[in-house]
Design a protein around this nucleic acid. Sequence first.
DNA 1: CCAAGGCCTGAATG
DNA 2: ACATTCAGGCCTT
Length: 280
Amino acid sequence: MQNNCIINVENSINSGQVFLWRKNDNNWYGINGQDILKISTSGSVKSYQNVKTDFFRKKDDIENIIKSISKDSTTKRAVKQYLGLRILEQDPFQCLISFIVSSNSNIQKIKNSLENISKKFGVKVKFENHEFFLFPKPEMLAKASINEIKSCGVGYRARFIKEAANIIALKKINFENLKKDNYKNAKEEICTIPGVGNKVADCVLLFSLNKLESFPLDRWMIRILEKYYSEKFQLETKTITEKQYNILHEKIVNYFGPFAGYAQQFLFKMERENYQKKWL
DNA sequence: CCAAGGCCTGAATG
DNA sequence: ACATTCAGGCCTT
C-alpha cells in the first residue's frame, strides 16, 4: 500500500464532477440518485439506502493508471500535486441531468439549479438528523411541465431535461446496457438525447458509465491543450466542430492511453486551481 | 463540412 | 448604481 492509494475526498468532490454535495461537521454529504452518501474524515462511505457503492472507484488499479497516464512533465506534475484525486462513479440519471444543466453555465449556477430541481421534484428525507432531497426519478421530471422545470432556473435547458427524463423513463435508453457497451456505441446512443453533445456525453460516460477513455473537451481542456500540448494536438479549426472533436479525441487516447479520462481530471483540477476557480 | 448566432440566468466585471 | 460580459455547449441556419 503506497500513498498513491489514499483517496483525497476533498479534491475528488471539488473537481467539477458532482454538484449536490455539502459539508456538515467535517463530513461530506452528497445526493447520489435515490441515495445519500456520507463520507467521513477517515474516508469511509456510508449509504442512506445501505447500498454498496464503489463511489471512489476502488476497483481501479490506480497505481497502474497513474503510471499509464504520466506521459510528460505536465501530467506528472498534476498527478503529483493532486494525488488522491479520483474519478467518481455516480448515479447515471443524475449525472446526465447535471451535465445537461452544465452547458453554457458555471459551477455555482449548476449547483443552484440542481438543488432547486431536487427540492421541487425530489423526495424529502432525513439522514443523521439532516434534511435532504433525493434526486428526482426520471418519471417525475418526464411528467413535469416545461415551466415548472424552468422555475428551477435552468432556462432554455428545461425542455432538454424533460425530454431526456422521458427517454430514460420510457427505457428507450438503458444505462445498464450502456455500461456493458463499448465507448463508441454508448456515446453514439447517448448523443441522441436532446441537449447532449460531445462534451456532455463524455462527462456522463466518464463519471457514471465506466468509460475511462472518455476525455470531455470543454473550454478549459481546450485551453489546457493549447497551453501545454500545442505541438501534439494542434487544432485545425477555430471552433471545435464534431469532426474536430472526434479527431482530437482519437489523438488524445492514442497519446494518454485507455485511462485518458483520469489524465483529463488531473489536468482540469490543476488548471482550475491555478486560476483559483471556486468549487462547491 | 464549417462558421456564426441565439439561447436562460445571475455572478462578475467595467 | 447600471450596463455588459461571460460562464465547464448545443442546436439551427
